[in-house]
Simulated scan of single mutants.
Amino acid sequence: MALDTLINRAFAPAAASVESGAIPGAVLGIVTADGERAVRWAGHAQIEPERESVSRDTWFDLASLTKVIFTTTRILQLVEAGRIALDDPLVTVIPDLRQYDMNAAERRLTLRQCLAHQTHLPAVEPLYTYGQDPNTLRAFILQRVWQPGPPVYSDINFMLLGIAIERITGRALIDQPLPERFSFRPDPALCAATERDTWRGCVIRGEVHDENAFALGGASGHAGLFGTIDGVLDFAHGLLDGSGLSPASMAAIRTRESEKRTTGWEGFYPGWHGGDACSSDTIGHTGFTGTGLWLDFRRGLAWSLLTNRVHPSRHKDSGILGLRRATGEQVIALFDQREPL
């Protein structure tokens, strides 16, 4: 079965979601370790205030895919360059972290712990409600007395990692170099719209949907990256064929740091967002706006589903979890039926 035929069938769940109005638009891309790829799309990049069709070249707010495509990758590249080590405490590069309490728990956190979400930090905090001055908000993140709790998936972990990258490189996140087809400053006219935001008073298009990332200047370690499906597939292919990271870094993103987490990524477990047909050697991640990326290393296969499911509002049931799982099941079932080339 040719990959183009496979993707036409694997796209059926997304096409049905678009047709039913559960989501405005969707783009599905598949890539193999040998570089074969296929892309399929349907629906709208925007339905209000005016309807515009989605295309292969539509830029999506990747939301928390920022964590893996940008932040995790950049930290690992800095490790490869010898600038830092994964088990370095954050204070190695952010010495002013909780600077008024030398015994603060945050001062003992390591880069690895933040990447793997193995800290006491909370999942999220409405930082944008404290103001919109990026420097003041960064200071607030660093000096806040965070209440202790069990390890959870935490945006705060990656905000700290973003600040670490800025300190090491001497460059704001929004000005960091990025691969082709990725940007922190996309052309709004090329982007899928996200939410009709009551806080900003408009339909968001071409600026980050995440309120905290917006208040932090448009880019943060946890959100802010935009990209096209081909940009995401380029990134995935670099991981599948091992050209995107060193062997040690590849081992890190594939090795469990906890039951469900690797360094930066989520690892396969029954019931997860990528579908139960994935091999145990599969990693993935999702983004709140409706994006997702999965890599099954045993099969040499990756797929990405990009949607703008929060447009025009997050306050509805888009069925995104079921859609992601159904898409993953379809992609793998069809891939496994292929005759060897």
Rank of each mutant, 00 (worst) to 15 (best):
D88H: 04
P312G: 10
L161F: 03
L301D: 07
Q118K: 12
G231L: 01
I174P: 04
W146T: 06
T5H: 13
P95M: 00
L161D: 01
V208P: 01
P312S: 07
T66A: 03
M102I: 11
S55K: 10
C278W: 06
C278G: 06
D187T: 12
A12R: 15
L245T: 13
L295V: 06
Q46E: 13
R167Q: 12
S17N: 12
D210P: 12
R40S: 11
A252K: 02
I165H: 12
D61M: 01
A16G: 13
A15H: 15
P312V: 09
L334R: 14
A223H: 01
E166H: 11
A12E: 14
R200H: 09
E106W: 08
G218Q: 02
W272N: 12
D230W: 04
L160Q: 09
F226Y: 08
R107P: 05
N8F: 00
Q143R: 15
F226I: 01
G206Y: 02
G244I: 09
P188I: 00
T72G: 03
T255D: 04
L28E: 01
A26W: 13
R200T: 07
F60L: 02
R205Y: 04
A15Q: 14
L293W: 05
G206D: 05
A251P: 01
D210Q: 03
D61K: 05
G201A: 08
N308A: 06
P186W: 04
R83L: 02
S220M: 08
R51S: 13
R138T: 06
F158K: 01
W59I: 14
I229N: 11
S313Y: 11
P24Y: 10
L3H: 09
T129W: 10
E166I: 03
W272R: 14
I168S: 10
R205L: 00
G218T: 02
R144E: 10
R56G: 11
E266G: 00
L190T: 14
I174Q: 09
G201N: 07
L160V: 09
A139L: 07
L334V: 06
K67T: 03
G217K: 03
S258Q: 08
L28H: 11
F140M: 13
R74M: 00
N135E: 15
E259R: 14
V39P: 02
G82Y: 02
R98Q: 13
W303K: 10
R254Y: 06
P122A: 05
A15K: 15
E166V: 00
P270K: 06
L190E: 15
L142I: 05
I94N: 03
A16I: 00
W265T: 01
T198E: 12
F226C: 01
T32N: 10
G25H: 05
